[in-house]
């Protein structure tokens, strides 16, 4: 099998240069590397959002399923909607209501908030999404 995968000369040089124990060590090393790489590749991101009230975590919401929730903010219940893997805050309308004006968000790290309510929603995870063009927006 190994002889089919590698050229004959490479197979023989590897075979001559190493003992059975060496080859077992190398095999274990590469299996570990593949396992670690797979852990990275399969990390979930962007399909959950965390809801905080006054910077305290109160809920983690899946964006996989359309739904709506209510969060008890300082000004009363805040309605949170999930649709098509996006999330938004609805119902309030005031110049200070950043959440209402943000609309739907879905990218990793995207935020929607109702500042007077103390409610902040952030899409997980915490790594940059390269589809977002700016590191910050001056306003």
């Amino acid at each position: 099998m190994a002889r089919r995968l590698f050229s004959k000369s490479l197979y023989y040089s590897l075979h001559e240069a190493t003992s059975y124990l060496d080859r077992l060590t190398i095999l274990l090393c590469f299996m570990a590397i593949i396992g670690i790489t797979a852990t990275f590749m399969l990390q979930p991101h962007g399909n959950q959002a965390v809801v905080t009230l006054d910077n305290n975590l109160i809920n983690t919401i899946s964006l996989e399923k359309d739904a709506h929730y209510y969060v008890n903010g300082h000004l009363g219940p805040v309605r949170v909607e999930v649709k098509n893997q996006q999330i938004r805050i609805v119902e309030y309308d005031s110049p200070r209501m950043i959440g209402t004006r943000t609309g739907w968000v879905q990218h990793n790290g995207a935020i929607t908030a109702c500042l007077p309510c103390g409610v902040v929603i952030r899409v997980l995870g915490n790594q940059e999404d390269n589809s977002v063009n700016y590191d910050s927006i001056a306003r």
């Binding site: 910077n55 790290g109 902040v120 915490n126 790594q127 940059e128």
Partner: peptide, 8 residues
């Protein structure tokens, strides 16, 4: 990789 966090 940019690590970021937000607080109110």
């Amino acid at each position: 990789t940019v690590y970021s966090d937000t607080r109110l």
